[in-house]
Design a binder for these strands. Sequence first.
DNA 1: ACCTTGATGGCACCAGGTGACATCACTCGA
DNA 2: TCGAGTGATGTCACCTGGTGCCATCAAGGT
Lengths: 187, 187
Amino acid sequence: MELYTERGFEQTTVAEIAERAGLTKRTFFRHYTDKRDVLFAGAAALQTLVVDSVAAAPPGLAPIAAVAEGLGTAAATTFADHDGVPRARQAVIEANPELQERELVKLATLGAAVTEALRGRGVDGPTARLAAEAGITAFRIAFERWITGPPERALHAVLRETFDDLRDVTSRVAEGRGASPGARADA
Amino acid sequence: MELYTERGFEQTTVAEIAERAGLTKRTFFRHYTDKRDVLFAGAAALQTLVVDSVAAAPPGLAPIAAVAEGLGTAAATTFADHDGVPRARQAVIEANPELQERELVKLATLGAAVTEALRGRGVDGPTARLAAEAGITAFRIAFERWITGPPERALHAVLRETFDDLRDVTSRVAEGRGASPGARADA
DNA sequence: ACCTTGATGGCACCAGGTGACATCACTCGA
DNA sequence: TCGAGTGATGTCACCTGGTGCCATCAAGGT
């Protein structure tokens, strides 16, 4: 992290990282599969947190609501303070395409895990997938809004708002098609 | 593509690709930024197709409906036949994590472009972003369903169905929360 | 004391990717 | 017709991420 923030990700060589940590290049690659992996090593913990939280949501809750709850738990704990480690990490990631790439993979993996968690709640496959991915999308955008927004606004709250916005936005999808648009939720 | 399907992506070296194409390694890298880029070179065309289509959607249409129309156009043209090039391409991609990574980036880029197209229609930033990303999510899942589904089912139709499913799934997001589902802050 | 095991170092090596320079074909104006 | 300019390609050297293989070394158990 030090080196990445100092000189940028690309300009930092693995040999340098290893040296700074008092290790060898070879040993570095035994701990991290990638040069990028350093930034994403903690992702596994976040994933289990979310997955457990989805699984533990009140039974009978709608799939998307369970996902919202799971992601909300992560938002309230891991991302509690606005100016902590995650923010610095995000700055590094945003400065480098290779890292954004990895970030997307991490989120995709999270999506798959949440899908499985939903199926564990008895949700059918396609619906689970859709609810999980929609939730991840909401989380991604909420995180973005949170980072760029005022410090006093908690991610937890932003996330909830984003989920509502997502509902509102998608509700108008059939507009302009043959089917009666207003016959739904917004009626 | 030949080499990638024959021996897999990892096992194919750039020198081999260049040789097969009658080129040099150096020349290859002047045409493609990456070894992966070969598979995604056509993505730019798809993107402009979608963006133009979103921009050309009937004015006054809801953001998400415009996105659905844009993606629907792509679905009806580029992905017309179920067993064409895209399917073979997808098989190669699915066999390799590195390529999936790039695929996600491509979709993220598409999302950003669609966001801009929506803003060009007068949609405010946050809503545009959300509608675009939600649309991309729907497209991703629809494509997946289409690939694994029966050949006679057109992507166009699957996409429309997926959009409706997305609407239905997200509509229940406020379930289990205190506030009445329809009553948002800005209501 | 001896052996096993796990973590590390050392080293050679491969492959993706880049920079710098030479070459070659092609066009265009004097 | 010729020579300059331009763009695409080839050649070569080089860096760096990443891996395989073997040596080393400390710790713990017998």
